[in-house]
Design a binder for these strands. Structure first.
Lengths: 163, 163
DNA sequence: AAGGATGAGTTATATAATAACGTCCCTCAC
DNA sequence: GTGAGGGACGTTATTATATAACTCATCCTT
């Protein structure tokens, strides 16, 4: 296992990975004084389990199957809104999909490399990207509130596979 | 008029602005050997006239009104696909909207500053942003095919207005 | 126990995009 | 000229994504 690669690109114990994310969410929510209810926790778990961006209606389908004829869109969207608001997940606008945030503890921007083939989304934490974006914004006196960077291309595995 | 500000932020002769965009599109299409049909040209004109991101169904509404009971979604989406494919417009994923490309002659990335209040979208041409994105991608061996940067915030005018 | 706030169920609808098929019309080889 | 092929557009239907509006339940506080 190459430690220089992001987690999304490596073999790992995925159950552990999900477990840790949920524990971190528990801790973060209790610290913030907000409620990570069973439904919200379950939605977050589903998102983490996939490790690839998951659509709202994918989540809806799982919940409906589990509970036998339940779950309408607002149920899922409300949970997603909560998770987004507490920085536990990111929304990928180019895919209309959601993915777990890999470092929810500190507020940060949404920068992703998205593989066109396998749909893996690699969250990158690059202060340099933010710095250049801020410089460009400053040049036209634009006050940044949120950065969205979604880069589409081929991940290392899929490059190798198509050779 | 401050020449350092992008066109979207300044007073200007908007009719001239639209006219020039359409002429550039004519030239570009004839050079490429593709057909800028009346419909495609009209859609491009509507997008340029707004100078702010315009939704597909906004375009559809105008076309339907003009032609008296015509225009279904595919009509508009096909025109948009053509314009996107020939780099005459950009799609803003975070708004589900489209905006004229300010420099269609050379292929380039899609980098925008989008005002949360007035919805003006400023296209920025910053090689520095691309450079940092490429550096981040290289670090994980990701091959970039397209960059999408959409930064939400407050433009200069709206900052001043809310003071 | 009353009352308020938050979370979630339910129904309906809005908004965005595409599938599938048909028709018209242009052009070009013959 | 003519008809074969292809591109552009019309048309109908459907899928996909997201929200509005209202109700009920639960839980916490007092």
């Amino acid at each position: 296992m190459n430690p220089s690669l992001p987690i999304a690109c490596t073999e790992h114990d995925h159950n552990l990975c999900v477990h840790q994310a949920l524990q971190a969410a528990d801790a973060l929510c209790s610290r913030q004084g907000v409620r990570l209810t069973a439904l919200r926790r379950r939605v977050l778990e589903l998102i983490w389990q996939s490790h690839k961006p998951l659509g709202a209606y994918d989540i809806l389908a799982v919940l409906s199957q589990e509970d036998g004829r339940r779950a309408a869109p607002p149920t899922v969207y409300r949970a997603l809104d909560f998770l987004l608001g507490n920085h536990l997940i990111h929304r990928l606008a180019s895919l209309n999909a959601f993915i777990g945030c890999t470092h929810p503890a500190h507020a940060h921007q949404s920068h992703f490399l998205i593989c066109r083939v396998c749909h893996t989304a690699i969250e990158v934490d690059s202060p340099a990207i933010s710095a250049t974006i801020h410089a460009a914004a400053e040049a036209v006196d634009f006050r940044i509130e949120g950065e969205m960077v979604e880069v589409v291309g081929l991940c290392a595995q899929c490059q190798a596979a198509t050779k």
